[in-house]
Design a protein around this nucleic acid. Structure first.
Lengths: 199, 199
DNA sequence: ATTATTTCTTGTCCCAGTTCAATGCACACC
DNA sequence: GGTGTGCATTGAACTGGGACAAGAAATAAT
């Protein structure tokens, strides 16, 4: 098993020794999941925290009236889990996690993660930082949802996920941006016209 | 100094021994801040994490075009800080934190918080849970911003913060909900009419 | 008490984005 | 090679909420 990808990723904000990385790697479980598999559904407890080696996953809410909102796309080098605090209140998850491509993961369970923190406590810090990044990005999306137009949101999305439009159906991106699939299509037509003018 | 309020609050998700709580309390600094004081402004580094004993604080973004969005109201028993991950990248904050009433706080600095984690590591867990709660609530707000009408958002807000409308100006609530102050006024009129019908 | 300042309400007009079709397109699959 | 089936595009009609303006009401300041 090749751990260089995940080790590089986790070392971005904290410098770990080889011993620490060895412990880290020994607790990870490799998992292959085919396309269109629902890994977590509403009402279940989320018992994994998965690092995406390869593939693409979406995480979403469905509200009582059936309206769906995508909370996160996770592609290579990202983590997916129900990181909401339901874990600590023993409440089941309100979200769904579903693969959109054939995926490969490295996975922690609550138990192996706890073991990691016991054996190599400095990983607490790394995971706290991941959580902070997640929060910062969610805050930014909240801000965008409130203050930006569809076109602005789409252009910012393209900068953040330049490859996703080639990988997933457009209506998922619309759901992520909080606009209808039809209006995203119109917005893209407009954006294309603008970049035509620019050359 | 009376620490019973903060000790009760921090013990909600983790049970601490008296020794741990003593360490916790010894590292906190009491601070009184008058109304309408800006505690953090854009471009500064946030060097505090404050527990609200009494009063009310708002935390907000201002975008380049001058548009303002309130990210959080913090009242009694809540924590305020720039918890975005900018801390770890040494980037200055993009947000403002401002008191809306005369306030009393118990405050950690990055240094005293680090000291707390060293001397009583189980507080890591408590603060991680706070972060999770924060993230869950931000995710929920994102979902609401995308999928709910102004009326629905206002009614949910009333359940979450029943006392705030009596404490802060309406246009701040509008900014939190992501709607204009005028439209909030119209929405409230509509909500009042509905509850009239109900009796 | 009077004035000034901020906040709240209400009305009118307008637009970004929705909803609901209809049509075209690109596949997978027998 | 036809034919479903899901996806993207485009258009027409509609609506939630914004922008602006002008009063009313409440708070603060002198």
């Amino acid at each position: 098993m090749d751990f260089s990808q995940i080790n590089k990723s986790i070392s971005r904000y904290v410098n770990f020794s080889q011993e620490e990385l060895d412990i880290f790697n020994s607790l990870l479980e490799y998992k292959k999941v085919p396309k269109k598999t629902i890994m977590l559904r509403e009402g279940e407890m989320c018992n994994f925290e998965a690092f995406v080696i390869k593939g693409c996953v979406r995480k979403y809410y469905i509200d009582p009236s059936g309206f769906e909102v995508i909370l996160q796309f996770a592609i290579e080098d990202a983590w997916v889990s129900d990181i909401s605090f339901s874990i600590y209140e023993d409440k089941p998850s309100r979200i769904f996690i579903e693969t959109m491509e054939d995926c490969e993961f490295l996975v922690f369970t609550p138990e192996t993660k706890e073991e990691l923190f016991t054996k190599a406590p400095r990983f607490e810090r790394a995971f706290r930082i991941l959580l902070h990044r997640n929060l910062a990005s969610t805050q930014n999306r909240l801000f965008n949802a409130i203050s930006k137009t569809a076109l602005e949101k789409y252009l910012e999305f393209l900068e953040l996920y330049p490859t996703l439009p080639q990988r997933v159906a457009q209506h998922y991106i619309a759901s992520y941006l909080g606009i209808s699939a039809e209006f995203l299509s119109k917005t893209r037509a407009k954006a294309a016209k603008i970049s035509d003018f620019r050359g």
